[in-house]
Every structure is written in structure tokens, then in C-alpha cells.
Design a protein around this nucleic acid. Structure first.
Lengths: 218, 218
DNA sequence: TGTACATCAGTGAACGCGCGTTCACTGATGTAC
DNA sequence: TGTACATCAGTGAACGCGCGTTCACTGATGTAC
């Protein structure tokens, strides 16, 4: 496995450190990859197109990346670094009216993150589901802390007798996160029907709040 | 648009009706498409491979389908026809302990459907998200009745004062369905962690039950 | 400040390959009488 | 039952194209003295 897949290292395929010009070129290639991912979707992505879009040649692409997947992996890592600070939000108060606000903030942060990186997160999830370990790692690193904190809060609520012990805390956390991921992914489509973003956020926030606290009856 | 995209019609690209032998060949091509979709994922799917897998020639493929997308669309339509009778389940009782059983049945039906058609439903959703009207239609036709019934039940519970009026019924239904879709899609991965299918089903059932009825406190 | 040299960065041009697609043809099946 | 003919179904072979990939080379930048 080439060094350049290791997060944070900035090296060419040869293993050399990169100067400022090279870093700019590399970033231009990554930007082009993302642009094509957004414009044409996950299915039609080629080295030649990426190089063309970045105003450079395929040979240059191969200086920096082994293949298209590796460029996508780097984009996924960049997106992960911009993951919002969900942990702090989740560690906020879940009591009473403040709890609902906390839930809203969590949902908003999640949806924002997804609209900013829709195409990249999509190919990350696809490749991870397909079995690619590198993408699985990026997703896990990004999501695990959130799931663990959510699960911990649910477990606390169970101990306090507010939430049914029949919920599996981690499974519930995963279910809520899945809901947020795919809600974010389908936002546009839902807007074609009568549902606007505010209603979606509010409704998801209430679902999450209810699961996390057991509250929710009128 | 060629006639063969219309559901139920069985015609070649030329518009002719198909005899029994032709129908078998066509189905063999569809089976090969699904097999490759399962084995290699959504990203590497080609006419040549499909023909090879079906023990026939690319030229034959073009007798029946305009391109790979059209074959995938037919698979999505076939999967839709095997959609379980969720409506009946949703129209069952949501009161007391029976309600929890209803929720479990809904979750199980959903998860079964997804494990049976994972790869096809995935490409359906991807293509629909990408903006392809034909795939959007198939997904909508398949999901809308379910969402509508779910939303109706939630609205009833709101009228009866059991569920908060702040939930948008249709948004809540979409959120729950999204949760089920992506939970089903990630089943394998969750099993790598400590979470087994039974726990997942039970937990999702309780989340749904709670949202639909307002019940769930210990 | 200028010159020589080493390294960094980028690319033109070519190669092979496999895919998408089509055409003209062959073989299979059904039907008429 | 047999023969002639029409239609159905399938495919070998070829074409062009664009992609992935690499190599040998050029130009840019930095450094030593």
C-alpha cells in the first residue's frame, strides 16, 4: 500500500515529500475529483476526466494517486476532518426543553455536514459497504465516536429508568445515525413532496429526542 | 423511450412481442446482471460482462435492452413486484403489546426484502438520487403507499392525542423508512460490531413503535 | 550577483486493451397446405 | 406426413473509440559557492 493513503502524509507515489507547488496541484486534482463526483455521480469517474478537469495530464494524476479510488479516499479523509463537533453537542443537556434544542442542533450539524460533502460521503459509504477496508476505516473513525456517545447517553437514560431497557443502546444509536445519513441524502427528493427542510429537521429532532429521553407524548 | 421500459410489457428493442425462448434468454440476462451487481458492486457493470455471464453474446443483450441501465431498471421493477405486503402489516393493531408485534413484523418484512434485493435496491436508490426519472418512479411507486399509510397512522395517533402534534406525519414516516432502508443496507457491518440482527430488529421495532404510538417508557 | 548543478514537478506521445455497438449472417421454430 | 416458407432468436466478427497506464523527456525551482 502506498504511503500516500496514510492520513496526513503528503507524499507522491514515489514516497518523496511534496513542495508547495506540488501540494497545490494535488489539491487541484482532488477538487476536480469532487467536482466530477458531484456533477456526474459515483458511476462515471475516470482518471482522464479528472486530469482534464484539473487542467493537467493523466500522467500528473499518477504522480499523486495510484488510482481513482485513492483520490476518493483522500476526499473522504478530508471530509472526515471537517466533521462537525457532534460529541460536544451530544454531551449537552437532554433535559426538558433544552433536550429538544440539543437534538435540533445535532440534526442540523449532521444535515449540514452531509449537504457539504454529499457526493464524497456517498462514495465512502458505497465503497465501505462493498468491503473496502480503507473506506470502512474512514467511516468508522468518523462515526464511531458519535455512535459511542449516543449509546452512552441512551444507556444512562435506561439506568435512570427513563428509557426502555429493551433498546440495545448501540443498535439504537446506529439506527438514529442511519436515519440522519439517509435523510440527509434524500433531502432534495423529499422537498419535491410537501416536506421542507425545517419540517424534516424538526421531525427528526423529535424522533431522536424521544428515543434518547423517552419523552415525547403531547 | 423504448417500449420495453414500460412495466409488464415484454418486448424486444424492435417492439416485437417475445416468444417463450426469448423470454428465457431475457431473464437469463437479467439474472446475470443481478449476479454481477451482487458480486462486483454497482461500480463495475458492463454489457460485455453481463453477456459473458449469461453465456450469450453482447449482440443478444442489445436485442432486449438499450443499455445496462435499462436492465437494472427492469431488475428494480421485478424487485418492486416482490415488495412484501407492508400495507396490511401497517394496518394491523398498534395497541399495547400487539403494537410492538406489528412493529416487529414491519421491520422484519423490510429487512427481508432488502437482504433479498440488496444490490438492486441500492442501484435503484443511487440512480434515483442521481436524478434518473425512471428509477425515481420505481422507488416512489414502491415506497409511497407505505409512507402514506405510516403517515396516516401517525396522524391518527396525533388526533387521539397520543403523539406530539409537532411531528410532521409524512416526514416522520420518511424518517422511519430511511432508517429501515439504511439499517438493512448496513446489517453486515453492524454485525462486525457487537450487534446481531435480532437486537437490531428489536431495537428498530421499538423505535418505530415509540414514534407511532408515543409509548415506550419503561 | 552569477553560474552550475541537483532535484522537483509536469507532460506529450504512445501503447495496448477492453468496452460499446452494429451488421450481415446462420440456425431454430412455427405454420400453411 | 412432408415440404416450403416466414418469422423468431441468436451470434461471429469486426469497428472505432476512449480509457488506463507508462516512459522518456522538458521545464521550473531551489541551492551551493
Amino acid at each position: 500500500m502506498p504511503d500516500s493513503t496514510k492520513e496526513g502524509r503528503r507524499v507522491a507515489q514515489t514516497g518523496r515529500a511534496l513542495g508547495p507547488r506540488a501540494l497545490r496541484t494535488r489539491q487541484r486534482l482532488l477538487d476536480a475529483t469532487e467536482q466530477l463526483l458531484v456533477e456526474r455521480g459515483v458511476l462515471d469517474l475516470s482518471v482522464v476526466d479528472i486530469a482534464r478537469t484539473a487542467d493537467t495530464s493523466p500522467a500528473t494524476f499518477y504522480h499523486y494517486f495510484k488510482d481513482v479510488e485513492e483520490a476518493a479516499l483522500h476526499l473522504a479523509e478530508q471530509a472526515a476532518r471537517e466533521m462537525p463537533a457532534l460529541i460536544e453537542l451530544i454531551d449537552g443537556s437532554w433535559d426538558g426543553a433544552a433536550g429538544l434544542d440539543t437534538a435540533r442542533r445535532v440534526v442540523n450539524a449532521f444535515v449540514d455536514h452531509w449537504s457539504a460533502h454529499h457526493a464524497v460521503l456517498l462514495i465512502r459509504n458505497l465503497s465501505a459497504d462493498k468491503g473496502d477496508r480503507r473506506f470502512q476505516r474512514v467511516r468508522r473513525d468518523s462515526l464511531s465516536p458519535v455512535l459511542d456517545r449516543l449509546a452512552a447517553r441512551i444507556a444512562e437514560a435506561q439506568t435512570a429508568g427513563r428509557v426502555s431497557a429493551a433498546l440495545h443502546p448501540f443498535a439504537a444509536a446506529a439506527a438514529l445515525a442511519s436515519m440522519l445519513e439517509s435523510i440527509s441524502a434524500h433531502t432534495r427528493e423529499l422537498e419535491q413532496r410537501e416536506v421542507g427542510r425545517e419540517q424534516l429537521v424538526e421531525t427528526c429532532a423529535r424522533v431522536i429526542h424521544q428515543v434518547m429521553t423517552g419523552e415525547g407524548r403531547p
